[in-house]
Amino acid sequence: MDLSILGYQFMQNAILSAFLGGIACGTIGVFVVLMGMPFIGVCMSHAAFAGALLGLWLGFNPLLGAFVACLIAAAIIGPLADRGELSPTTSVGVIFSLMLGLAFLFMGLMPGSKSGALELLWGSILTNTRSEVILLGIVAAVVVGLVIAFYKEFQATIFNRDMALAVGIPATAIFYGILFLTGATITVSLRPIGGLLIFSLILNPAAAAYQLTYNMKRMFFLSAGFGVLSGWIGLMLSYLFNIPSGATIVITSSVIFAIATFFSPKRKVKRWQKAASRFN
């Protein structure tokens, strides 16, 4: 294998982006998996995609559009989910379809070449600039830093939000903080991974880590590690076979999930539950 490719800045940027994006997405994914809110994340990632396309159409920074759209989606979906007014399946169905509809509407209205829009759709880690890598690094550092600083508040909120409130933890603020971090992570990962695929990189590494441990701290480490591994292996496959990098990264994360599920020590819990239900 020719390693001279590593000498090029575009490849260095891509490797760094995969590393930082993997850590940020893997860390956020732990909240998404343990708080049972994949529907919120799916809606937010598609809102980010629509917001970025709006930016491209109207001529302002697509990342700003993505971030604002994420926050708006969180501000709408969060309270609805909070009050139990919409079931997860209903809200994901309605808002997901609305966001995709808006995204394709903006794409259709966009004059001239659609290459920028397609890049946001499929992702293009190999064209990441140094400033985008720095932005990704800032978001990854903020996400990891906040998880370390407020670990016990996050842990209590993940376990049970009402219980966390009852012991005096501001669990509602923590929950909306998690949504905000999810929005920020999705926004900066949008270009390298792609609007249609970003949520898989948030969900799959955390879902794989969830299969392997009963320790929450270890789950954070494993999930971030799987995120990085997905990015690097996916990047290598993309380079070797000249195929879209967003797709190879997400497929790699899915394969890691499948392997983790196969070797999961928690599979026996399912067997144990089945056995118990036979006696009830």
Partner: peptide, 28 residues
């Protein structure tokens, strides 16, 4: 406050000692 018995995810990555410690988090 002890709420009514709730369904806890059998795969939740927390042990008994950690869950009991949650009671001290607000005080800390």
């Amino acid at each position: 406050y002890v709420a009514q018995l709730q369904n806890i995810d059998p795969k939740m990555p927390m042990n008994v000692r950690e869950v009991a410690m949650l009671g001290r988090y607000g005080l800390l």
